[in-house]
């Protein structure tokens, strides 16, 4: 299990390959990557991601450890960036390895649902004209936790 919180970009291809190479005994590896999308209204120039150093790592480790146990994963990886990102940048990735694909897919969805609402990150959108707004948490993101 590996948790990485960093400002720098990550190499998705290299991370996915290394994770898969190390996943001995697994029959399934699932990866998910989150990408900064354009804001709904207007042109977003920058997305700033703030986090709570210390608590972020603890929260991600707790979420990943729960997924490891619940789906008997052989390995799990979470990488999440912070700082200034622009549309098209990769924000984060998760990878899960399990003996069978259903467990790997479900665990990846669980990781995503929980790290959206339980890991201390906050997004701020800055538009081309300089206007800035914090992204509101969505009710459906909180509701998504109830299915687990």
């Amino acid at each position: 299990m590996k948790i990485v919180v960093q400002e720098a970009p990550f190499d998705f291809g290299a991370e996915a390959q290394a994770f898969s190479d190390a996943a001995k005994g697994a029959g399934a590896v699932v990866t998910f990557t989150g990408v900064v999308r354009e804001a709904d209204a207007g042109a977003m120039a920058v997305m700033e991601i703030e986090h709570y150093p210390g608590m972020t790592e603890k929260a991600l480790e707790k979420i990943a450890a729960e997924a490891m146990t619940r789906w008997s994963l052989t390995d799990a990886l979470v990488i999440h960036r912070h700082g200034r990102l622009v549309p098209g940048d990769q924000i984060m990735m998760v990878a899960t390895a399990a003996r069978h694909r259903v467990a790997a897919f479900e665990a990846a969805e669980y990781l995503m649902d929980y790290l959206k609402s339980r890991a201390p990150f906050w997004k701020k959108e800055i538009l081309d004209d300089g206007a800035a707004a914090w992204v509101d948490a969505k009710d459906e993101d909180e509701d998504a936790l109830s299915r687990w």
């Binding site: 989150g34 709570y52 608590m55 999440h80 924000i91 984060m92 995503m112 790290l115 959206k116 609402s117 339980r118 890991a119 201390p120 990150f121 906050w122 997004k123 914090w134 992204v135 509101d136 948490a137 909180e142």
Partner: peptide, 10 residues
């Protein structure tokens, strides 16, 4: 003690 709005990770 830390105060913050609901989290928006992912």
């Amino acid at each position: 003690v830390a105060f913050f709005p609901p989290m928006t990770g992912g």
